[in-house]
Design a protein around this nucleic acid. Structure first.
Length: 496
RNA sequence: GGUCGGUUCGUCUAGGGGUCUAGGACACCGCCCUUUCACGGCGGCGACACGGGUUCAAAUCCCGUACCGACUACCA
């Protein structure tokens, strides 16, 4: 039985890269008929928060990835991790390091590490720790005397680790490049690499699919597996999702754009976003791009995953491009092509949250509601559009777009009397449907010596507040005789 | 600095020695449709990082360079 896990650390909301990692794990598990598990890696007490855990769970739920077994919280296993470290110490595969803990500097931590690595270049061996070969008696004595110590893995002097990565192929690393990593902090807290390995063993994980940033960690973890006498699982590393310019996509620099909840809150359909995410770093190798979850599951293989990083394209300074163009397009594609019945609940929820929902839409006005949604969805990009651009269809209280008013109304002052006049013509219309409306407006335009478009667009501005939208005949019909007349006569837009 | 990885249109990608004058999608531009448009149809722009090899033949294999990224913590 194949068992995979998604293991986020709760130090923020669900990141777009993590979401994709979760997606790929999920697709892989489903594809091979295995299990998809979830583990919260909350061992960094200083940075982990319950709030983050909730946010991550919420994001996963939105995307539709429910774990197949109970969620594992890594912090609950700290005792087991400690025991493993002690066992390795006992067996002589690890040692106590009595070197005093270095005080953290306030400088950028990444830079500090790189600087130190540069300085140590060619000078420091990975095996020159003075406590590495301390006799057991001496080590025990110091420990008994209460001297604080960390426990480090005793990496062999000669040899190399190697594994076959499911995406990157054969990966080898000389022991000389790997430090004697710390397993247990001097305050007794187990560290990441140890915790991960122990938990993956405990959870019987067979395949680890995670970000490429863990590629080099893998060698350290394999060393731990070996020390523990366990066979390592299979590994597959995913290329990263970067920001425009090829830089790391971070919440600190890029803000809410990297958070999954942002997409939900901006009217994205989970199915559309999931589809978009799947195509970032993976390809079905066909020309089909719109794929249902089932289709994704069916065609998902590790071979389709790329080795090069993908860029999540967006422009923070351009509201129209606040997120990746293709993601927006895909959402629009879903909105206008999915089964209407599947879309309706989402529209209902959106209207409810905008206080535009009326219970009649579920009852006597059901047909009207469905037709209207079907009519206006053609040009919409997100669910938000139903309550914003589409507001005039559901409420009398809507705004007039400035360009619509200027371009289609004020530019033709005659319309100020013509449109109310057209409304009067409508009053005598028995059958307020496509053909009679068409005839009435056509005759009216001819009478006035105006172009049909001039009348139609003026009416559009008055009836919908916008310069764009569906065919006006459909709009008249949808809004109905009463509202059409009322809005044509209204002088509000003229006084703006 | 070291180790490792990567490099096909602006972006996501197909391709893995000949079928490549490099295919698709998004974006952009133009035309058509038309009462508007953000729909639809048609078309256009646009890429194999660079330099050496190997080969009859290289986007595809090898080497080097450049650039980008990851790791190099008693973070995860």
């Amino acid at each position: 039985m194949i068992r995979v896990r998604f293991a986020p650390s709760p130090t923020g909301y669900l990141h777009i890269g993590s979401a994709r990692t979760a997606l790929f794990n999920y697709l892989y598990a489903r594809h091979v008929g295995g299990k998809f598990l979830l583990r919260i890696e909350d061992t960094d007490i200083a940075r982990s928060t319950d709030e983050s855990t909730r946010s991550i769970l919420e994001g996963l739920a939105w995307l539709g990835f429910q774990p197949d077994e109970e969620i594992v919280f890594q912090s609950n296993n700290a005792d087991k991790h400690r025991a493993a470290a002690l066992k390795l110490l006992e067996e002589g595969k690890a040692y106590r390091d009595f070197t005093p803990k270095a005080e953290p500097t306030d400088k950028n931590i990444k830079e500090t590490i790189a600087d130190r690595a540069r300085q140590n270049q060619g000078v420091k061996s990975m095996r020159d720790n003075p406590f590495r070969d301390l006799s057991k008696a001496e080590s025990d004595a110091k420990a008994a005397a209460g001297e604080p110590f960390a426990i480090r893995l005793k990496v062999p002097v000669e040899g190399k680790t190697s594994f076959e990565d499911g995406v990157y192929g054969l990966s080898e690393r000389d022991y000389a490049e790997i430090e004697d990593l710390v397993l247990l902090r001097s305050d007794g807290h187990p560290l990441y690499n140890l915790a991960v390995v122990c938990d993956d063993i405990e959870m019987e994980i067979t395949d680890i699919i995670r970000g490429q940033d863990h590629l080099t960690n893998t060698h350290k973890q394999i060393l731990i597996y070996e020390a523990l006498g366990k066979t390592p699982p299979r590994f597959a590393h995913l290329p990263l999702i970067l920001a425009p310019g090829g830089k790391k996509l971070s919440k600190r620099i890029h803000g809410e754009i990297v958070s999954m909840t942002t997409y939900r809150d901006h009217g994205f359909l989970a199915a559309a976003f999931r589809n978009f995410l799947a195509l970032l770093g993976w390809s079905p190798k066909t020309e089909q791009e719109i794929m249902t979850l089932d289709e994704l599951v069916q065609s998902f293989t590790l071979e389709g995953i790329h080795r090069n990083n993908a860029i999540f394209n967006f422009d923070a300074n351009n509201p129209k491009r606040w997120t990746d163009d293709k993601a927006i397009w895909m959402n629009a594609e879903y909105i206008r092509t999915m089964l209407l019945d599947e879309l309706l609940p989402f529209v209902k929820a959106e209207l409810k949250s905008a206080k535009l929902w009326r219970d009649e839409y579920d009852d006597e006005d059901k047909a009207w509601f469905e037709n209207t949604v079907n009519l206006i969805r053609e040009r919409f990009f997100t669910l938000k559009d139903f309550s914003e651009q589409g507001r005039a269809y559901f409420s009398e209280d809507f705004d007039f777009d400035e360009t619509a008013v200027n371009k289609n109304l004020k530019k033709f002052p005659d319309l100020k009397v013509w449109l109310p006049e057209l409304a009067t013509r409508f009053e005598s219309l028995e059958d307020f449907t496509h053909d009679p409306i068409h005839e009435t407006v056509g005759n009216f335009a001819a009478e006035k010596g105006a172009k049909l478009g001039q009348i139609m667009n003026g009416a559009r501005a008055l009836l919908t507040g916008l310069a764009v939208g569906p065919s006006m005949l459909a709009v008249f019909e949808t809004l109905g005789k009463e509202k059409s007349i009322l809005r044509l006569k209204s002088q509000i837009a003229w006084n703006l």
